[in-house]
Design a binder for these strands. Structure first.
Lengths: 118, 118
DNA sequence: CGGAATCCTTGGAGATACTG
DNA sequence: CAGTATCTCCAAGGATTCCG
C-alpha cells in the first residue's frame, strides 16, 4: 500500500466520475444501444461528457463500440464480458447499501416513533 | 432507473473521490489510528482534504471516530461493521481487476512476443 | 495534536457551435 | 448521426496559516 500503484484506485476513480455508472446501467438493461439513444436515456448529460465517458470506459475494456458505416452513420455500444462481471459486484454493492439503509430506518423509527405516521 | 434516486450512485460518488479508498485501506490494516498517523501513511494528502474525507466517511457510517480529551488531544479513527462488509466487496473488485489484468498481459504477449525479452 | 479558515489553483462539467 | 472543438464556470483539491 505504500509505493505500489493501486489498480483498484485507478478504475475506481474512473467509475466514480459522474455519469459512469449511469452509462453502465443503461447499457446493461438495453444491450447494443446507440449514442443518441443513450443520451436520451440519461437526462442532463451533455454529448461532450457522454463521449468522454464512453471513451474512458472503452479504454478500460468495459464497453464495446461497433461502427456501422451507413448513412447516416450508426454507432452502437454494449457491455463486455469484463463489465458483465463487474455488474455482479455492483449488485452486491447495491445489496450492501440496501441492507444498511434498512438498519438506519429501523434506528430512526426507534428514535422518532412519531415520524412513521407523517 | 429514470427518476429514482440511486443510492449506489451516491455512495459511489463519495467513495470515488480522491483518497477515500486509501483511507479505508489504511484503516483496515491498522485498526484505530490517529489523524496524523493516517496523514503520514498517505503521502501527499493534505490535512484539509483528509479531514474532509474523514467527515464524509463518518457521515456515511463507514468509520468511527473516538476523541480522547487528553493533552495533547488524541483522536482515533477505525472501521465500522458496515465498512468491514464493504471490504469484502472491494476485495472482489480487486480480484476482478487482477484477473483481467492477467488476461491483458497474455494478449499483449501474443501480439508482441518479443516484448517479453526486453 | 487535530483540525478549521482562508486563499489559490486547476480540472472537469456543461453550453454552444460546428463537422465528416 | 455521432461526435469534436472551444469556451466558460465552478467545485474540489492543495498550500498555508492559525487556533483550542
Amino acid at each position: 500500500m505504500k509505493g505500489e500503484k493501486c489498480e483498484v484506485v485507478d478504475i475506481w476513480q474512473i467509475l466514480g466520475k459522474r455519469w459512469s455508472l449511469h452509462i453502465l446501467k443503461n447499457l446493461s438493461t438495453n444491450e447494443n444501444i446507440r449514442f443518441n439513444e443513450l443520451k436520451r436515456l440519461i437526462p442532463d448529460i451533455s454529448s461532450t461528457v457522454l463521449s468522454q465517458r464512453l471513451l474512458e470506459l472503452e479504454r478500460e475494456g468495459l464497453i464495446t463500440k461497433k461502427i456501422y458505416s451507413e448513412i447516416p452513420i450508426r454507432v452502437e455500444y454494449g457491455l463486455t464480458l469484463r463489465s458483465k462481471e463487474l455488474e455482479t459486484i455492483l449488485q452486491q454493492l447495491s445489496n450492501w447499501i440496501a441492507k444498511w439503509n434498512a438498519h438506519e430506518k429501523k434506528k430512526e423509527a426507534k428514535a422518532f416513533p412519531q415520524m412513521s405516521k407523517s
